[in-house]
Design a protein around this nucleic acid. Structure first.
Lengths: 188, 188
DNA sequence: GTCTATATCTCGATAGAC
DNA sequence: GTCTATCGAGATATAGAC
């Protein structure tokens, strides 16, 4: 065990996804993490703080995977595909984290986050949408709508792929093809 | 008050969406419903049964809105649009129910449902997808994938419209237009 | 069927030794 | 920082009168 705090977060993630926030007492989290009950409250002053911290940590992790290399000379579509595929692969390779996010954002804990935390940090993708509209590549729609549609799309595909347990090659096919489906939806 | 059982369900829906399953004690539900604590447990033997019953009731309600009149001579696309629009309007006019469904299916309570309950009753829409594929109107993809994509799409649009608080005419525009977006995605 | 009253239990959080 | 021990609050569910 490298770090008890990390270990607590790991245990909490696993148990919350299995049993929900309600169904997971802090005592069980401590046990699963291999630490004492009191130790948990040394790192997180309340259960709620633990839940919210976990969300922030996971979201940070996801954002890190969606960074585009600067000075990229590829086309707008290729840039978007890169980000899309990164996000999708993350959702597929991190099923538990993915399910946690889903659970969290559908719960009232979402409102405990500072509004600035909720708002999309990753404005790079929003910039790309705007650029696409300006260059008449993407349909002229409200940016927020496009963003919502693309996010839902990603959610749907992740869910489908996670359910199906496909082989790696088949999986990559779907990922790639699903981008084209999404693209046909938003492209002019 | 017509029916205490209905009143309990109504109160539970409101409070669960506001405070989550965890944050809503049965005592509060009883109070909000205007009945005694014991009465709640007369109708629902456990809190969990109440939660699951509420989901089933709401799902039934939604399904009822998605029925297509028989003997419809309209085209496949028009039939699908009718169902799509009905579902979307339901999600927009019943924000609370919509949020409850979202919360429920992201929670571990989903697993408490009998598998047959989870599975899509409304196979009419699945039949339409299959028919569309056979007639080479819709892309040849796994039915489950199409279904997942359309569902996510509906979710996304509902969420967007609910957030934006649009005027009625604007709202209808988006509903109609979003169908076309979805159609471009799945149509050949 | 509906109520009041309450039993029983578990959980979140704290206190204090080490 | 980490542990053990425990308090007090509040939860679900029941018992029993009406």
């Amino acid at each position: 065990m490298i770090d008890k705090q990390t270990e607590i977060l790991r245990a909490a993630l696993k148990l919350f996804v299995e049993n929900g926030f309600h169904g997971t007492p802090t005592s069980l989290i401590a046990k699963e993490a291999g630490v004492a009950n009191g130790t948990l409250f040394h790192y997180f002053s309340t259960k709620e703080e633990l839940i919210v911290s976990l969300y922030v940590a996971i979201k940070k992790n996801l954002s890190a995977c969606m960074v585009l290399e600067e000075d990229s000379f590829s086309s707008l579509k290729e840039q978007m595909k890169y980000i899309y595929v990164s996000a999708l692969k993350w959702g597929i390779d991190n099923t538990t984290e993915f399910r946690f996010i889903q659970q969290f954002i559908s719960s009232p804990y979402l409102l405990k986050l500072a509004p600035e935390e909720i708002q999309q940090k990753n404005t790079r993708i929003l910039q790309l949408f705007q650029q696409g509209i300006d260059e008449k590549i993407i349909k002229k729609l409200p940016i927020d709508l496009i963003n919502t549609l693309v996010n839902s799309h990603l959610f749907g595909v992740s869910q489908y792929v996670n359910q199906c347990q496909l082989a790696a090659s088949e999986r990559d096919n779907i990922i790639s093809y699903s981008f084209e489906l999404m693209w046909e939806m938003i492209a002019l």
